[in-house]
Structures are given as structure tokens and as C-alpha cells.
């Protein structure tokens, strides 16, 4: 839901960018009082570098959440993708295109498996993707005891090069985000995603092939996780199964929800998600610069997420109960 029509009130996306600006100002003030400068080049680079990884995952996650689904397996998909990339490249620059194609294929297949289980077997998305995540975890733990593969230095540039203070990975992430915004606003399937998230039954009766839409969203989400895996491989210089221990999926979901997308689907967008990712990145950088205990970061992050969603819920209630009126009558198999 973006501010397309002029309304007396701010649209959710505008509000979230306002919140981002607020967080930036507050963060800069806090850092300045500490004697630092949040906008020093090193800090800006740190901030933008943080956005790219969560960004890729969160963009894909936005698509599935808009369809009223969920993907808890993206962290495992990213870890597997990093291994596929690194072992396929095997130190040879010539293998890079093949590796990228293979990663997108593998991650797309995982996404389509998720989508198929949810759409055709009618398994609750929470359980379905938790299950595929566990299956991937079992495969990774059994197959790869440690880091594997070797990423040629050409491809490592994807992780480290930057133009001015903007890392290339962040630019790629923004490009993917722009593509996703266009996709949701201007294509048929994009519009159908909102419809499916709003009410599956109504969408189906209006002639939308709901299973196909769900499947598409999950494939795209899987592929975004694949790109995140490529970035992980480029940064580490090798493939790592351990990457899944960082619980990236929860970060991504938090960013999506922070970006104003309803967890119940049908409302939100990628533009907000990017702002959500940026807010988390700014918070992380500020905590880092001020050398706050890493455990305090978790506490504050949890509090920020809950507060933000509580504030959205407040707005939702005010606005003449547009969706809540239907929320109670929506059918959803589990």
C-alpha cells in the first residue's frame, strides 16, 4: 500500500521513511554525543553493507507475506546457495556464470517445493517452510562438515567493491528492490499477489489461479535467498553451511513487518521493506559505533519491532476498520 492517492493522512510507506529519517537523526545525535560521527565514510559503508544481505532476503519475504504465506527456510536456502556457488566456481573465474545460474536454479527449485507443498498439499506455510528448512539443515549438516569450495577473486568483488561509499551489493539489492516494486505495481501476477493475500477464496472466485500466484511468489522468494547466498559466498570467499545459524529468516520477517507489510497479507510493499531493512541496519551501526553490548542489541531490537507493529496496529484501528472487518471471516486452511 503506497501513497498513490492523495489522502489527508500520510501513507504507510511515507510514514516508514519518516521513521527511518527519525532513527537516522536520533542515531546521529546519540553518536555525536558520544564524540563520533554517524555519517563518517566508514560508518556509512558499514550501514549500507548491512542492508544488502537482509535486503535480498526481505524482498523475497515481502512477496510471500503479501500472499499471506511465510518462508522460514530462507536462511537454509541461502547457506546451501553459498555452498553451491563456491563449489561450482571452484576458484575458476570462467565458472562464475554457470555457478550463478545453478544457484538460481537450485534456490528456485527449493522455493517451488515450498510453494507446491503450501498450494497443493494445503500445509500451513509456517509448518511447510519450517519442514523444508529442517530438511535442508539435515542435508547441510550431513554433507558439509566445514567450509567448502573456493570463490575466485573476481566474484569476491561482489562482496567488497564499492563505488564511493556505496557497496556494489547494496546497489544490486536496490536494483532488485526496484524490480520488485515494478513487478508488484505493474504486472498482472503482482496485482494478483495482493488479491490472494487479501482473500484467497474471493481471488479464486474472481478467476485468479491462486495456486500459480502462490507458487510464483515462493519461487521468487527462493531465488532472492539464492542471491543472498551468492553474496555470502562472495564475502566469505568460500561456501559455509554455518550461515544458517544467524537466523536470517527472523531478521527478514522483522524487516518486512517493520516496513509496514501486514503479516496477514494483502497489504504492504517492497518500498516499505527496504526502509525496514535500513532502519535495522542503522540501529545496528549505531550500536556498533557506540560499542553497546551485542546482547543489549537483541533486547532493543525486539523492543523496536514490537513497538513499531503496535504503532501500525493503532493506525489500522483508526482507519475505519477497512480490513479488520473482514479479518474474522477469512477462510484459511491449516
Amino acid at each position: 500500500m503506497t501513497a498513490q492517492t492523495p489522502r489527508p493522512r500520510l501513507g504507510t510507506t511515507a510514514l516508514i521513511y519518516l521513521a527511518l529519517a527519525g532513527v537516522l537523526v536520533l542515531g546521529a545525535a546519540a553518536v555525536a554525543m558520544d564524540g563520533g560521527n554517524l555519517f563518517a565514510t566508514a560508518n556509512l559503508v558499514d550501514m549500507l553493507t548491512r542492508t544488502s544481505l537482509t535486503g535480498f532476503l526481505a524482498i523475497g519475504m515481502t512477496l510471500v507475506i503479501l500472499c499471506r504465506s511465510l518462508d522460514l527456510s530462507v536462511g537454509y536456502t541461502a547457506a546451501l546457495s553459498s555452498l553451491v556457488a563456491a563449489t561450482t566456481m571452484d576458484g575458476q573465474a570462467a565458472n562464475v556464470p554457470l555457478a550463478v545460474a545453478l544457484v538460481l536454479l537450485v534456490s528456485g527449485l527449493i522455493g517451488s517445493a515450498n510453494g507446491a507443498i503450501i498450494a497443493f498439499l494445503k500445509v500451513n506455510p509456517f509448518i511447510a517452510t519450517l519442514g523444508t528448512g529442517l530438511i535442508l539443515k539435515g542435508y547441510l549438516d550431513t554433507q558439509y562438515k566445514g567450509p567448502a569450495g573456493d570463490v575466485p577473486s573476481v566474484f569476491q568483488q561482489f562482496g567488497y567493491t564499492r563505488i564511493g561509499f556505496v557497496p556494489v551489493s547494496a546497489l544490486v539489492m536496490l536494483a532488485v528492490a526496484a524490480a520488485a516494486v515494478w513487478y508488484l505495481r505493474s504486472t498482472r501476477t503482482g496485482h494478483h499477489m495482493y488479491a490472494v493475500g487479501g482473500d484467497v477464496e474471493v481471488a479464486r472466485m474472481s478467476g485468479i489461479r491462486t495456486t500459480r500466484v502462490l507458487l510464483t511468489a515462493h519461487v521468487l522468494c527462493g531465488m532472492c535467498a539464492g542471491i543472498a547466498g551468492l553474496l555470502l559466498a562472495a564475502r566469505f570467499g568460500t561456501g559455509s553451511a554455518e550461515a544458517y545459524t544467524n537466523l536470517y529468516e527472523l531478521d527478514a520477517i522483522a524487516a518486512v513487518v517493520l516496513g509496514g507489510t501486514l503479516l496477514l497479507g494483502g497489504k504492504g510493499g517492497v518500498a516499505g521493506t527496504v526502509a525496514g531493512v535500513a532502519i535495522l541496519a542503522v540501529l545496528d551501526t549505531v550500536f556498533n559505533v557506540m560499542q553497546i553490548d551485542p546482547f543489549a542489541k537483541d533486547v532493543l531490537r525486539g523492543a523496536v519491532i514490537i513497538t513499531a507493529v503496535a504503532l501500525y496496529a493503532r493506525r489500522q484501528l483508526d482507519r475505519t476498520a477497512r480490513r479488520p472487518r473482514f479479518a474474522a471471516t477469512q477462510g484459511r486452511q491449516s
Binding site: F295, D298, V299, I305, I306, L317
Partner: peptide
């Protein structure tokens, strides 16, 4: 009361508890 989805509420609580205990 605050109408936050329980998925988010308890996810936030998970982060808070995890961090607070280690802190």
C-alpha cells in the same frame, strides 16, 4: 491490547529474553 500479531510479539520477546539473559 496493542493488537500486535502474536508471531511478532513473541518473536520480539524471544529476542528480548535471549539478549537480556546474556546481558
Amino acid at each position: 491490547v496493542l493488537k500486535v500479531q502474536s508471531f511478532i510479539t513473541t518473536l520480539g520477546m524471544l529476542l528480548v529474553l535471549y539478549g537480556a539473559i546474556r546481558l
